[in-house]
Amino acid sequence: MQGRPDSGFLQWRWKPDRCELPRFDPGTFFEIVRGKTMAFIGDSVARNHVESLLCLLSSEEMPLGIYKDAEDRTRTWYFPHSNFTLMVIWTRFLVLDEERVINGSVTGVFDLHLDKMDKNWASKLPEIDYAILSDAHWFFRKNYLYEKGKNIGCIFCSEPGIKSLDIDSALQMVIKVVLNYINNCKKCRNILTVLRTFSPAHFADGAWDTGGSCNRTHPLGEKEIDLASLDWKIRSIQVEEIKRARTVARRRRKFEVLDVTKAMLMRPDGHPNSYWGNKWMKGYNDCVHWCMPGPIDAWNDFLIALLRRHAFTDFTWS
């Protein structure tokens, strides 16, 4: 909880219409994933999700940390009793990116190459049984998109001769090529690819760098959320691309959606805000990541419900 003094956000739980959502059961989870490898592929919000999962699983079995990179962004844990491997693999955009440098200084502006995957995760794909993908937060900045070396557009720019792209349309291009890459991976296992939908931020009275904060202590009601927002447009595109991927899926490929957006649109009370313990960016609030324990734990309730539908049947092909 990072020192956050209130705890009311722990008492609320997502309840779907017309059904009960069982709480996460680590024993059942380990039974489903025994002998498998699961990788969460994405940015720091993907890491946030993994941290929640680790906390839940550790009540049943403590993992061994067997790998971490120099920046502690890509990590691997092993649960020996269950013979289960859990990874979090850092990537900003899923596709290859190059940050522009001017006079020796980084700019925060990236060139994205749609015909090349980020090798950080793509090189590990053949050893993965469950790939949990997420992407979007790094698109909220000036980024240039390329295909076969040719510029095809830019987000947040108005430059002569360069097509201006909306965030959602640029993200859709990336998701499409990533899912196609996974579908056509010849060395891959019987892989289940799960795309987690967009996890909204809740900055109020400013952006992250202009004094924005998230001070609410109660969730929003269903009628208070905006389903015409960019958050929802991004979610809808992600769902659309998974549906498209299913129509062309090869025999050993399965594609699913982990749909968290609506549930999280209602939880502006669940972020660390000023209680995030950051030593390098003092004065800024965190309304992107989620307190733990907290609303993010529901993502693993959703995840295990999804895995149950595929358990013991979808991974028996030769």
Score class of each variant (00 low, 15 high):
Val109Gln: 15
Gln11Thr: 13
Phe84Pro: 03
Leu112Val: 00
Val239Trp: 01
Leu227Pro: 09
Val33Met: 09
Ser7Val: 04
Gly283Gln: 04
Pro219Trp: 02
Asp25Phe: 07
Lys279Leu: 06
Leu21His: 12
Leu303Gly: 07
Cys19Tyr: 15
Lys119Arg: 07
Phe255His: 02
Lys150Asp: 09
Trp14Phe: 14
Ile182Pro: 07
Val109Lys: 15
Arg4Leu: 06
His113Glu: 03
Asn278Arg: 11
Arg252Cys: 09
Phe79Tyr: 13
Phe40Thr: 02
Leu195Ser: 12
Gly65Glu: 12
Ala245Met: 02
Asn273Gln: 05
Ile162Ala: 06
Leu192Ile: 08
Lys36Val: 00
Val95Phe: 05
Gly294Phe: 06
Ile234Glu: 05
Cys185Leu: 08
Leu306Ala: 02
Tyr78Gln: 02
Met1Cys: 14
Met87Phe: 09
Gly104His: 10
Leu56His: 11
Arg4Asp: 09
Thr210Ser: 12
Thr74Ala: 01
Trp12Asn: 05
Ala245Ile: 03
Asp25Ser: 15
Asn215His: 13
Pro126Asn: 04
Asn300Glu: 09
Ile41Glu: 03
Ile102Gln: 10
Pro22Tyr: 08
Trp90Cys: 04
Asp17Ser: 15
Asp209Gly: 01
Ala131Arg: 10
Thr193Ala: 11
Ile191Glu: 06
Gly35Tyr: 11
Pro126Trp: 02
Ile175Ala: 08
Lys282Pro: 09
Ser213Thr: 14
Ala305Thr: 13
Ser164Asn: 12
Cys55Arg: 15
Gly35Pro: 09
Leu307Gly: 00
Asp115Ala: 03
His81Tyr: 10
Asp286Val: 05
Lys68Val: 03
Leu195Val: 13
Val239Tyr: 11
Phe315Arg: 10
Asn285Gln: 12
Lys254Asp: 11
Ile237Asn: 13
Val106Ala: 14
Gln11His: 13
Ile237Leu: 14
Ala305Lys: 13
Gln172Ser: 15
Lys119Phe: 03
Met87Arg: 15
Glu224Phe: 04
Glu240Met: 13
Ile128Gly: 06
His310Thr: 05
Phe110Ser: 10
Asn273Cys: 11
Arg73Lys: 14
Phe29Glu: 00
Ala70Ile: 08
Asn285Cys: 08
Ala311Thr: 00
Met87Asn: 15
Val178Asp: 07
Asp129Gln: 04
Thr74Asn: 06
Trp317Gln: 14
Asp205Thr: 06
Ile182Glu: 01
Phe302Tyr: 10
Lys254Tyr: 12
Lys186Thr: 14
Asp166Gln: 09
Leu86Cys: 03
Ser123Cys: 04
Tyr78Asp: 00
Ala305Ser: 15
His218Gln: 11
Ile162His: 06
Arg309His: 03
Leu112Asp: 03
Pro80Asn: 06
